[in-house]
Simulated scan of single mutants.
Amino acid sequence: MVAIGAQARVAGLSLAGVGVLVAEDPEAVRRAWQSVSDEVTLVIVTPAAAEVLSQTQLQGTRPLVAVMPE
C-alpha cells in the first residue's frame, strides 16, 4: 500500500505502515505513479493528486485507488 500526494496530507500514513510518495506538483504525481511497484495493490491519493491522474488510472482494478476526502 502506498500514498501519493502533498507531504502535509500523506506523511502521517507512514505511521500506519503505508509507503509514502511525496508529490507536491503534477509532474511529481506522474513520476510517483509510475514508480509504484506492480506488487502494490492499493494506492491512496490526495484529491489534488487524483486531478492529475487519468480516469483509467483511477478506475482500474489493479492497483485499487482510493481518493482521500477533502
Rank of each mutant, 00 (worst) to 15 (best):
M1V: 12
V2F: 06
V2T: 14
A3Y: 05
A3W: 02
I4C: 11
I4Y: 05
I4N: 08
A6T: 11
A6I: 05
A6H: 14
Q7Y: 05
Q7I: 03
A8E: 14
R9T: 05
V10R: 07
V10D: 08
A11P: 00
A11Q: 14
A11K: 14
A11M: 13
G12I: 09
G12R: 07
L13S: 08
L13A: 10
L13Q: 03
L13E: 11
S14L: 14
S14K: 13
S14F: 09
S14G: 15
L15D: 02
L15R: 06
G17A: 03
G17T: 01
G17W: 02
G17L: 07
G19M: 01
G19C: 01
V20G: 02
V20Q: 09
V20C: 05
V20W: 02
L21F: 14
V22C: 03
V22G: 04
V22Q: 03
V22L: 03
A23K: 03
A23P: 05
E24A: 12
E24F: 01
E24C: 06
E24Y: 04
E24H: 03
D25C: 05
P26A: 04
E27Q: 11
A28E: 14
A28D: 09
A28S: 15
A28M: 05
A28W: 04
V29L: 00
V29T: 00
V29F: 09
R30I: 07
R30Q: 12
R30C: 01
R30V: 10
R31S: 13
A32G: 07
A32H: 10
A32Y: 08
W33A: 08
W33Y: 05
W33H: 05
Q34K: 14
Q34F: 01
Q34L: 12
Q34S: 12
S35R: 15
S35C: 03
S35Y: 01
V36H: 04
S37H: 13
S37N: 13
D38F: 04
D38Y: 06
D38W: 09
D38C: 13
E39R: 15
E39C: 00
E39P: 00
E39Y: 06
V40H: 01
V40K: 00
V40M: 00
T41L: 14
L42Q: 07
L42H: 11
L42E: 10
L42N: 07
V43F: 06
V43K: 10
V43T: 12
I44C: 02
I44E: 00
V45A: 08
V45H: 11
V45W: 10
T46F: 02
T46I: 08
P47N: 10
P47E: 02
A48Y: 01
A48F: 04
E51N: 06
V52S: 11
V52N: 13
L53S: 07
S54F: 09
S54Y: 08
T56Q: 15
T56W: 04
Q57L: 11
L58Q: 06
L58R: 12
L58P: 06
Q59D: 10
Q59W: 07
G60H: 04
G60S: 14
G60T: 13
T61G: 12
T61D: 13
T61K: 15
R62L: 13
R62M: 10
R62G: 00
P63W: 01
P63Y: 08
P63L: 09
P63T: 10
L64G: 01
L64A: 13
V65L: 07
A66E: 11
A66C: 12
V67H: 04
V67E: 12
M68T: 06
M68P: 07
M68K: 01
P69L: 08
P69I: 00
P69M: 01
P69S: 15
P69N: 10
E70Q: 13
